[in-house]
Computed example of a mutant assay.
Amino acid sequence: MRRQELFIRTILVVGVVYATWKTAGWYWSDGEEIPRSVISSQWPSVVPKPLNPEPNKPHAQQALNSFPTSLKPATPTARTTPTTQSTRTTTRAAVAPTKKAAPAFNSSARIPRILHQAFASEMVYENYLPYINSCMALNPDWTYYLWRDSDAEALISSAYPEFLAKYKKYSDVLERADSIRYIVLHHFGGIYLDMDVQCVRPFFPALDNFNSFLDQERIEQTNIFWGWPFSVMNSAMGSAPGHPFFREVINEMLHKSQIGNAFATTGPAILTQVYKQYTAVKPAVPVTLLEPNVMSPLMDGNKNWRSMCGSLAAAKSKPDSRRSWKERGCIMLESKNWRYDDSDNSTICVHRFLHLGYGFAAGARKKPFNVTARFWPRVRTFK
Rank of each mutant, 00 (worst) to 15 (best):
K166D: 05
T20H: 12
V124K: 00
S66N: 05
S179M: 15
V197T: 15
P286H: 07
I219T: 14
T266Q: 03
K166M: 07
F210Q: 04
Q198I: 00
K72V: 11
K383P: 12
K57G: 02
N52K: 12
S108T: 14
F360D: 05
P292K: 00
D344Y: 03
N106E: 12
A104V: 01
F7P: 00
Y278P: 01
Q117H: 10
N251T: 08
K49L: 05
W147E: 02
F7G: 03
A373Y: 10
Y27T: 12
I331Q: 05
Y160C: 07
E54W: 02
F188C: 08
V124E: 01
V281R: 13
P103Q: 06
L356M: 08
F105E: 01
I111G: 01
Q216L: 04
H255C: 04
I11Q: 03
V124Q: 01
M299P: 04
E5S: 14
A109D: 13
G238W: 02
W226M: 09
M295I: 03
R380L: 14
C349Y: 00
M195C: 11
N211E: 06
A264E: 12
W305V: 07
F67I: 10
V16W: 09
Y160Q: 13
H187R: 10
P82Q: 07
A24F: 15
V124Y: 00
W21E: 03
K383E: 13
V200P: 01
V294I: 15
A93R: 15
I191F: 05
S335N: 13
L214C: 01
A24L: 11
W26K: 06
M295F: 03
G329E: 08
A177H: 02
G363M: 04
K22Y: 12
L214S: 00
T87R: 10
P82E: 06
N234M: 13
S37N: 07
M299I: 12
S231W: 03
F369Y: 09
Q42R: 14
P244N: 11
P244L: 10
R36W: 13
E32D: 06
Y278T: 02
L254M: 15
L146M: 04
P73T: 12
W28M: 15
R378W: 07
L164F: 07
Q85D: 09
A94H: 03
P73H: 11
A154I: 04
P241T: 03
D30Y: 07
D172K: 07
N251F: 06
R323I: 10
K282S: 14
N251R: 14
G260W: 05
T84K: 06
K282E: 08
S324L: 06
Y145N: 01
V184H: 03
R9Y: 15
R352W: 04
M233E: 12
G190M: 01
A236S: 13
E220M: 04
T83F: 12
D178N: 15
V350I: 14
F360Q: 05
A109Q: 10
K316S: 12
K367F: 09
T347S: 04
C135V: 10
R380D: 08
K367Y: 13
F375K: 06
W28N: 14
V200N: 02
K326V: 07
V249G: 04
K366L: 15
A152N: 09
Y145F: 12
N370G: 08
F163G: 01
G359T: 08
I270E: 00
P268T: 00
E5K: 15
L155K: 04
V16E: 05
R9L: 15
G301N: 07
A361Q: 14
N261R: 10
P112N: 04
G363N: 14
